[in-house]
Amino acid sequence: MTLELQSLSLSLGGRRLFAPLSFTVRDGEIVTVMGASGSGKSSLLDFLCGMLDRNFTTEGRVLLDGADLAPLPPERRRVGILFQDDLLFPHLSVGENLAFGLPPDLRNRSARRAEVARALVDAGLEGFESRDPATLSGGQRARVALLRTLLAQPRALLLDEPFAKLDVGLRDRIRSFVFTHARAKGLPTLLVTHDPDDARAAAGPVVALASLSDGSLANGGEPGSS
């Protein structure tokens, strides 16, 4: 599975956010996109998962496993995303949150329950099915959020500064939890951050995204090394 950006650029109100981006993210590889706020990092991820505001215009293409993503609605892209906040649905239990991610073609109830239980064991939260997400610690919530995303069987993973709000001590552990899982599943992963530690931990190529509003040029070519 590879995620390939071909001369991709986004514009808002006639203003281009960054110079055209071209790079490839291979199986289990983590590419870090860095840039100041307003440089279009989050918009880039919104575009990749199909949720970009209609006021933006786009140029270039994104291929996942060789197929163009653009014609697909978000729910059929199978591109998982994690945000700064875990966004666990507050009206569902931990187990129901995980089951929300499971594909509908897995119909058998006990099989669904077993998948959820397996994911909870994986997160070190065995037996937490009926817990209220609001009663979990920040680290526990972050792990549930990742596993919910993975249960949807994504073909690529997008990370929108998912560690920014975690305590420093916790950050390292969650980071390695996420990266280990992404690599183990062989997911091409795109990490957006402004924290150099994230980039170092990802140990993959880094793309610097500079805002074009001040006239400077983005490093919109091949990713440099970290």
Partner: peptide
């Protein structure tokens, strides 16, 4: 309502109706 919940649900494979 925080639109990121909706985005998150769509990226988990949910249709707009779901």
């Amino acid at each position: 309502l925080d639109a990121r919940y909706l985005r998150s649900a769509r990226c988990l494979g949910a249709t707009p109706f779901t």
